[in-house]
């Protein structure tokens, strides 16, 4: 039995990385999927791969007008939203002395304003559907930020506060709309591959990233997508406001260390 039969889902950052993995898994589980992304070429290609289960919506998550148009487009194509997955994100590590105010604002804008607008407009659509599930992709860096993640960690913490307040609000209003976050550690995404490739010793850096986790490896996109699928599905019907770690145990580890920690 497919876990998302008949569900309508929108996935931001859906053209690549974790978002694309989620889009493929959701479609395979019976959902109709709107791939929302700023990368029209990759988004359109993935939508085509999903066939009649997929459409592409152009979306810059920091633009309120884009959100309104994208959700209207999904409603027109499929109907009101059952599921929103917010996977759009940027991460450019820098410590406090090196990071510029522009970088701070860029991170806060994508993760903070993006999550704010996404939840705001998704709830509007989900109320028409009568129920819904929002899954925000956060990070281990919001829980225990390393020194290089002053912008990213703070922006993900802002997103986490939105997740929790939305969970509380929707619960208290009796909306039957749940809102949770998933916190991956290092995952084999294009972003990670890019870090590794640009390092002087890619294999050495990969081993450092893997060794940070008690499981001593890096996650696959599918492993993160499974957590998103679980939270999005009715299997998680009593879960809201939860921060779900998919982190190989790194947040339980007492002495994290190493480059990128």
């Amino acid at each position: 039995m497919a876990r998302l039969n008949g569900k309508i889902a929108m996935i931001t950052g859906g053209a690549a990385g974790i978002g694309a993995g989620v889009a493929r898994m959701f479609a395979a589980e019976g959902a109709r999927v709107a791939i929302a992304d700023i990368d029209a070429a990759a988004g359109t290609a993935l939508a085509a791969e999903l066939g009649e289960r997929g459409i592409f919506c152009p979306l810059d998550v920091t633009s309120e007008g884009d959100w309104q148009r994208a959700i209207a487009q999904v409603e027109e194509a499929f109907g009101p939203l059952d599921i929103l997955v917010q996977s759009a994100g940027i991460s450019r590590p820098a410590h406090i002395e090196a990071a510029s105010l522009d970088e701070w604002r860029a991170h806060m804008s994508v993760h903070g304003e993006g999550a704010f607008l996404g939840c705001k407009y998704a709830i509007q659509s989900m109320k028409k559907a009568g129920a819904g599930s929002i899954v925000n992709i956060s990070s281990v860096e919001s829980i225990r930020p390393g020194p290089l993640f002053v912008c990213y960690g703070a922006a993900k913490a802002a997103q986490d506060a939105i997740t929790k307040t939305v969970a509380l609000h929707c619960g208290e209003q009796g909306y039957n709309i749940r809102c949770n976050s998933v916190h991956p550690a290092a995952t084999y995404t294009p972003l990670l591959e890019q870090y590794l490739k640009s390092a002087p010793d890619p294999a050495g850096l990969e081993a450092i990233y893997a060794g940070m986790q008690p499981l001593n490896r890096i996650a696959t996109v599918e492993e993160v997508a499974h957590a998103v699928l679980f939270l999005a599905s009715d299997d998680a019907s009593f879960m809201t406001g939860h921060q779900m770690y998919v982190d190989g145990g790194v947040l339980a580890k007492p002495y994290p260390k190493g480059e990128g920690a």
Binding site: P214, H226, M239, T240, G241, V246, D247, G248
Partner: peptide, 19 residues
Amino acid sequence: RASFTTGALLTADGGWTAR
């Protein structure tokens, strides 16, 4: 499905701990 999840506390509490 949870092959990368360890040391986690999965909370299914209708939002109680988020309060």
